[in-house]
Amino acid sequence: MENLFMQMWIMDYQFGFADKDYFKSLVQRGYLSATGYQKIVGEAYVAPTVQTTPAAQV
Rank of each mutant, 00 (worst) to 15 (best):
M1F: 10
M1P: 10
E2P: 08
E2R: 05
N3M: 07
N3A: 11
N3L: 10
N3F: 08
L4M: 12
L4I: 11
L4F: 11
F5C: 12
F5A: 12
F5Y: 14
M6E: 02
M6Y: 02
M6V: 05
Q7S: 14
Q7V: 12
Q7W: 09
M8H: 13
M8L: 13
M8F: 12
W9V: 01
W9M: 10
W9E: 10
I10R: 14
I10T: 11
M11C: 07
M11S: 15
M11P: 00
M11I: 13
D12P: 08
D12M: 15
D12F: 15
Y13K: 05
Q14I: 09
F15G: 00
F15V: 11
F15E: 12
F15T: 12
G16H: 00
G16K: 00
G16I: 01
G16E: 01
G16C: 03
G16V: 00
F17G: 11
F17P: 01
A18L: 12
A18G: 00
A18K: 15
D19T: 04
D19P: 00
D19G: 04
K20A: 14
K20S: 14
K20P: 01
K20C: 13
K20G: 02
D21T: 12
D21R: 10
D21E: 15
D21M: 12
Y22A: 09
Y22R: 10
Y22P: 02
F23L: 05
F23Q: 02
F23I: 07
F23P: 04
F23M: 08
F23E: 01
K24G: 08
K24Q: 15
K24H: 12
K24R: 15
S25V: 05
S25R: 13
S25C: 10
L26T: 01
L26W: 03
L26M: 14
V27K: 01
V27T: 03
V27W: 03
V27M: 04
V27C: 06
V27E: 03
Q28C: 07
Q28D: 10
R29Q: 13
R29C: 11
R29I: 11
G30P: 07
G30D: 02
G30H: 03
G30Y: 01
G30T: 06
Y31R: 10
Y31C: 05
L32D: 02
L32R: 03
S33N: 04
A34R: 07
T35M: 02
T35V: 06
G36P: 05
G36W: 01
G36F: 01
Y37D: 01
Y37T: 02
Y37P: 03
Q38F: 02
K39T: 14
K39W: 00
K39H: 09
K39Y: 00
K39D: 10
I40M: 02
I40R: 05
V41K: 08
G42Q: 03
G42Y: 06
E43C: 11
E43A: 08
E43Q: 10
E43G: 01
E43I: 11
A44H: 05
A44P: 00
Y45W: 05
Y45D: 08
V46T: 15
V46S: 11
A47T: 10
P48K: 09
P48I: 08
P48D: 13
T49M: 12
T49R: 12
V50Y: 07
V50W: 06
V50D: 08
Q51K: 14
Q51T: 15
P54S: 07
P54E: 08
P54A: 09
P54C: 01
P54G: 00
A56S: 08
Q57H: 00
Q57Y: 07
V58N: 04
V58R: 04
V58I: 09
V58D: 04
V58M: 01
